[in-house]
């Protein structure tokens, strides 16, 4: 190894000794955004999808808890290391389980959750359809006689209204 190379290695060693602990400290105490704005935007979006474990019902992007901050930093580190969004999420899910995902994945245990609203909507639509059909097929005669009584009542109410507003 020539002298120059040795010098470089020495410089590198000194720098890394000087820098490493400081970096660790900085990372562990404070939220430091990524230099690349595109990456930072990705990180911020992922933060919103991860649940804070300590505070239980906030995303890590909305929490002052220390673990939430550590996870924010971890997400930034994974992105800086070149992970895709999915890889970053998978990295955290591997450690904490699906529970940390605020957007629950579609799987057999969440079918009811994800398809439930569609079913509810269709049932509601069906209910309205039944109701509409029923309120239209009543024989005309009954409807008319009912309505006559109705009209009187309604008229009385409307008269009250007029009085009230005069």
């Amino acid at each position: 190894m020539n002298r120059f190379a040795r010098f470089i290695v020495l410089i590198f060693a000194i720098v890394s000794i000087l820098v490493t602990p400081v970096l660790v400290q900085a990372q562990s105490t404070i939220d430091k955004p990524l230099e690349n704005p595109v990456d930072e935007t990705r990180a911020l979006a992922l933060h919103k999808l991860l649940r804070c474990l300590v505070c239980q019902n906030q995303s890590i992007s909305d929490s002052n808890a220390e673990l939430a901050r550590d996870l924010r930093i971890l997400v930034r580190q994974r992105i800086a290391a070149g992970d895709s969004d999915d890889e970053t999420l998978a990295y955290i899910v591997d450690r904490y389980g699906d529970w940390v995902l605020l957007d629950p994945p579609v799987k057999s245990s969440t079918y009811v959750l994800w398809f439930g609203p569609v079913v509810i909507f269709l049932l509601a639509l069906f209910g309205v359809f039944l109701f509409m059909r029923r309120s239209r097929i009543v024989p005309v005669a009954t409807a008319a006689s009912l309505n006559a009584e109705e009209e009187v009542k309604l008229k009385k109410l409307l008269d009250d209204t007029q009085e009230g507003n005069s």
């Binding site: 999808l49 605020l102 245990s109 969440t110 009811v112 959750l113 509810i120």
Partner: peptide
């Protein structure tokens, strides 16, 4: 309203039936 109710109580339903824990958050 039924959808919000389902999302709010789903973690409880699932836990009660299977013991599995799930989070339902703003994206849902």
């Amino acid at each position: 309203c039924a959808t919000v109710l389902l999302g709010t109580l789903y973690p409880l339903f699932l836990d009660a039936l299977t013991g599995e824990k799930v989070s339902v958050g703003p994206p849902y």
